[in-house]
Amino acid sequence: MIRGVGSYLPEKVLTNAELAKLVDTSDEWIQQRVGIKERHIAAEGEFTSDLAVAAARKAMAAAGVTADDIDLIIVATTTPDYTFPSAATLVQMKLGMHHGMAFDLQAVCSGFVYAVATADSYLKNGLAKRALVIGAETFSRLLDWTDRGTCVLFGDGAGAVVMDMANDEELAAGRGLLSSALRSDGHHWEKLYVDGGPSTTGKTGFVRMQGAEVFRHAVGKITDVVYSALEQANYTVADLDWFVPHQANKRIIDGAGAKLGLPPEKVVTTVDLHANTSAASVPLALSVAVADGRIKPGDLVMIEAMGGGFTWGASLIRW
């Protein structure tokens, strides 16, 4: 069960108009192609673990728990503070915890969906009792600010959820995480990657993307895992109350919704204000939809994402 949701966005907002002063682009060009109006950028000295902790505290407050109640922390991120230790252990430290286990999960934009499924497995197998699952990124630090094909797409942020096992009454009502479908195919790695790393260049590197190729694969792969998750739980698209997709590109979101036959009013979209925050995008969108009252207890919610690797996945949740 998801007991609480929280999010955090850095204070600095970078608009399309401001970006147009840095690179050959325009507000019209960006909005027309990807539907983004602005994005948040982490401040100097503000790290991924800081964003993660801020979102985690809000999620724990919403769930009515403290760090003493958590025994598993999973941080989905592509932009950890350090090569090691993991961002998750830094979050653990900053929350004042000396117990439990903490680790990072790297599946790029699909990271949060992978992390939710992983936490669910740990909980159901008795390896943990209560999990803090976080998607957090300072993706702006991987951007080549002279490359208009990538620098306009991404932003920074964090989202978190608190998860534990459903009680008998909730299980009887069919609530909780019902199914997950996770996929990857490393043959596509060159279509979306960072051109650096400890073992290759010894440097962080920058995001590189074959945008048309990523777009070509996205809608089909997204719908594949959505249908798989629904089939596992014996539901159909018509049963969904909310579709919370990865917020990468408005045209991809609209294309997936149309292919699934979902009315736009059932699709949660935040890409216009957050841009692509990689592993943080799904929990950020969830947080917005819970906070404004759209997602309510008992609703059937599908989360999905696709990212570099390629990785992609979906989870079906009875809220």
Rank of each mutant, 00 (worst) to 15 (best):
I2F: 06
I2G: 00
R3I: 08
G4T: 03
S7R: 14
P10N: 07
E11W: 03
L14M: 11
T15H: 14
A17K: 15
E18Q: 15
E18I: 12
S26G: 08
D27K: 13
E28A: 11
I30M: 15
Q32P: 04
R33Y: 10
R33N: 12
R33L: 11
R39E: 09
T48M: 13
D50A: 11
A52T: 04
A52P: 03
A55S: 08
A55P: 01
M60I: 08
L72A: 05
V75F: 02
T77C: 05
D81I: 03
Y82V: 10
T83G: 09
T83M: 15
T83Y: 09
F84L: 09
P85L: 06
A87E: 00
A87S: 11
T89W: 11
L90E: 02
M93I: 05
K94V: 03
G96T: 07
M97Y: 08
H98G: 07
H98S: 13
H99L: 11
M101T: 07
M101P: 02
D104E: 12
S110N: 12
G111W: 00
G111P: 00
A117Y: 01
T118Y: 07
S121K: 12
S121A: 08
L123S: 01
K124Q: 11
I134Y: 01
A136Y: 05
E137G: 02
F139A: 04
S140G: 09
R141I: 06
D144E: 07
D144V: 08
W145M: 14
T150Y: 04
D156G: 07
G157P: 03
A158N: 04
A158G: 11
A160V: 04
V162P: 00
V162H: 02
M163T: 01
A166I: 09
E169T: 08
L171E: 10
L171G: 12
A172R: 15
A173D: 12
D185I: 10
D185Q: 12
H187I: 04
W189R: 14
E190V: 07
G197Q: 14
S199K: 11
R216V: 06
G220A: 13
V226P: 01
S228H: 14
E231M: 15
Y235E: 06
A238E: 15
D241N: 14
Q247D: 10
A248Q: 02
K250E: 09
K250D: 03
R251F: 07
I253Q: 00
A256F: 04
G257R: 00
A258G: 08
L260T: 03
L262R: 11
V267S: 08
V268M: 10
D272A: 13
D272R: 15
D272G: 07
T277C: 15
S278R: 03
A279L: 06
V282Q: 02
V282D: 00
L284W: 08
A289P: 07
V290C: 12
R294K: 15
R294P: 05
I295V: 12
P297K: 04
G298P: 05
D299H: 14
L300P: 14
V301T: 08
M302L: 15
E304I: 05
F310P: 00
T311I: 05
A314L: 07
S315L: 05
L316F: 12
L316V: 05
